[in-house]
Computed example of a mutant assay.
Amino acid sequence: MNNNKNIFSWLIKASLMLFIITFFTFTWSLDVEASVNKINLNYTIMPYDYAMSRLKNITGNWYDSKGNLVLTINNGYINGCKVMAYLSAGDAGGYRIKEENGYRDIGLVIDHNNYKKFLYLDERIVLRPTKYPQYVESINGMYLGMSMDDLLEKYGEPDRKEKKGKAFPSEWWIYNGAFSVFFVGDMASTIVLPYGSTFTFDKCGLSARDMEKSFRKHYKESANYGAVKIDEGEYIEFKKGTVELTVYN
């Protein structure tokens, strides 16, 4: 009889423990979903080891367009908070960190199209790994990584602006007949000149009036097609009616 009571008592305790584990797991999942839904409805919570492997690609200091330090990522911590997991959401994603008052989910996406590593924070802010923009070539004082404020100071308001993309803010600034600049967040990622523009590339001295082969010769580009590589993450593209200085290849 006593054995039956002990078994019955053990079953009740086991059931209660299972309920508690299920409840907290479900509650934690809801908390994650509330945060990650802003990134993507389809996400997967990845384990700690996977999160650490992802962090290796973005270790270091990250600055906004004004040179302010925003993130420090090192040894499994983001701004001094321990990383607990990676939240995978297709092309997007983020990390769960442990703060003093609990857990917090932040969106962090690296732009793999260029070695300069633009980092997108919470789908609102673009960060770079250097306090000031690093570039080789520029066009009439305009350079890749230039901020909107810097362009406004130099050339004033554009004739029109065209917003692009829904997941992350990006925008074309168009100066009619002269040039246009594509911003990702608050940093210039492409500068476009129409053929015939009098604007010149500051380092090589060439302009959109020069032949494509002149650019290839100056930058010692042996291929007669595709983008001309200036440096890692800096390219000159030749498209129908335009010449572009861009981070994309």
Rank of each mutant, 00 (worst) to 15 (best):
A167Y: 02
S29Y: 10
N37R: 09
N79C: 14
Y195E: 15
F183N: 00
K164V: 15
Y50W: 11
G156T: 07
I110Q: 08
K117S: 15
D64I: 04
F8W: 11
K217G: 04
C81F: 11
G196S: 06
F168Q: 02
K240T: 12
N74P: 01
L41N: 11
R124I: 09
L206S: 03
S53C: 08
N224M: 13
K213N: 10
S65I: 05
G145Q: 02
E212Y: 03
G241T: 05
E237N: 14
S35H: 02
M84K: 15
R104D: 07
E244G: 06
M84V: 11
K56F: 09
L152E: 11
F23P: 03
G60R: 07
F199N: 13
E162N: 14
L11G: 09
K82A: 13
F23L: 15
N224G: 08
G107Y: 01
P194S: 15
G67V: 02
G145A: 07
H218S: 06
V184R: 01
N2V: 07
S222H: 08
V36W: 00
N224F: 13
R209P: 12
M84C: 00
Y155V: 08
L18N: 12
K213E: 15
K203T: 13
A223T: 14
Y86V: 01
L55H: 05
T44P: 04
Y48R: 14
F118G: 00
Y248K: 03
Y115V: 12
D31K: 00
F183S: 00
P194N: 14
I125P: 00
K66H: 13
E33K: 06
K161F: 06
K161E: 12
V83P: 01
N224K: 13
P169F: 00
Y77N: 13
L193R: 03
S9C: 12
Y248C: 07
R128F: 01
L144S: 04
I106P: 03
G165M: 08
T72A: 15
P158V: 04
W28I: 02
L16H: 07
H218L: 00
R124P: 03
N61K: 12
M46Q: 10
I73S: 05
L206K: 10
I110D: 05
L127N: 04
V181D: 05
A34V: 06
D31C: 01
D105A: 14
K82S: 13
R96F: 00
S180C: 12
Y95Q: 03
E123C: 10
Y50E: 14
I139N: 04
I174V: 14
G233C: 12
N249R: 13
E212G: 00
K161H: 07
D122Y: 03
R160D: 05
S15V: 09
Y143I: 10
R160I: 09
T27P: 03
N42S: 15
E232V: 10
K213C: 11
Y115S: 14
C81P: 04
W10T: 12
C204A: 12
K154C: 06
N176Q: 09
C81H: 12
N6R: 11
E171P: 10
D210N: 03
V247E: 04
K116L: 09
I7N: 08
Y219T: 06
Y175W: 08
L41Q: 08
E99K: 15
S138L: 04
P129R: 04
G107T: 03
P169A: 02
K240F: 10
G141T: 06
F182W: 01
S29I: 07
F168E: 05
S214A: 11
F201H: 01
D49F: 09
